[in-house]
Design a protein around this nucleic acid. Structure first.
Lengths: 182, 182
DNA sequence: TCATGGTGTTTAATATCCTAGACAATCAGG
DNA sequence: CCTGATTGTCTAGGATATTAAACACCATGA
């Protein structure tokens, strides 16, 4: 097997922040099978692999097509932004190397302690933004991180996500979404 | 299984002109397995499906990606050519709707009884052409057809193919290939 | 008419996948 | 130090994929 099915499955599962048991429950298989597949101890049948991917969900074609080497970078440090402009007009791009972006800019403001709600959001499109002032906790899939001024984010909105202002002052973000959901 | 693995496999096998036994021999599996898979009597494991596709050869990603509805049209009737030009300059395109073409035009001439050889040709690139005079027998994969003046062909050169002049007069073809193999 | 060689299909036995359940390790409170 | 709830891993047994071999069918020719 030149193609590493186990690594691919583990990659999609962790990207979506699911445990083996949670994915197994959604897919209607056992957690043991997920474990065995991810360790390449078995070579799953097409039907069972399809059942597993239906729990994400992800089509079979995308599973084999997806590029494992380009990990979907969701967080960017202040120095990871691409500086495009000149000293007068400074353009700092987030995820500039990512192809197929179609974003619209927003200006958000979170009061101290505010959040997008208890439930995780998940919808079509993409989201990106830069924190201007204050601190905000962002959860994307299984990962979570507190972002401060100058730091940024970029992720696919279908990944479950949530914003929460964990600081004492208001937080401002220059954000963007696609398509024009707001 | 919403995805019809059996139909996909049968499609690629017949497209390449292989019998179940011949494909099984190349893949290192049994002909019975090919039969069962094509009838959807079993759902093959990833490893065995990969072995089968290695016999073609075709990568797993392409197997699941390929569009089953758009059968690779290899033959075009005289009225299936796309007329582009005006009454003064007439451009009749072969496979005009196919994307990613990169062809170079040739003018071939086959004497009566001549052929490209006993062995089937198979190489990278694409081939296309229009018969101007005479009649020529063209075999592509498992299919074979005699083309006369005004008829045309278009196929991927990796499919085994052969030209043979089955008529009594010379045959002329306006053909093309890519990349510049000749 | 009887071979011979090709095709795809079917069947009993074997190899492999898959499940159910138990196991150990980790973490969070009480 | 517990208890309870996570996590991923492992194992025995039932379910399923896969093999090897036979079967039936259709050609082409002697």
């Amino acid at each position: 097997m030149s193609i590493d099915v186990g690594a691919r499955l583990r990659s999609v599962r962790t990207t979506f922040g699911l445990s083996q048991r949670e994915l197994a429950r959604r897919a209607g298989v056992t957690n043991g099978l997920i474990s065995l597949i991810e360790q390449n101890r078995v070579s799953p049948s097409i039907s069972s692999l399809k059942k597993v991917l239906d729990g994400v969900p992800m089509p079979l074609a995308e599973f084999f097509t997806m590029d494992l080497s380009v990990a979907p970078q969701a967080f960017f440090g202040a120095d990871e932004l691409v500086e495009l402009g000149n000293p007068e007009v400074s353009l700092r791009l987030v995820a500039a190397q990512r192809a197929g972006r179609q974003l619209t800019i927003l200006h958000e403001r979170y009061a101290a302690g505010a959040a997008t709600g208890e439930e995780m959001l998940a919808h079509r499109g993409e989201e990106a933004g830069v924190v201007i002032r204050g601190r905000i906790e962002l959860t994307v899939g299984g990962a979570s991180r507190v972002l401060g001024p100058g730091e940024a984010y970029y992720f696919a909105s279908q990944l479950p996500h949530r914003f929460r202002n964990v600081g004492r002052e208001a937080c401002e973000i220059i954000s963007a979404c696609t398509p024009a959901t707001f």
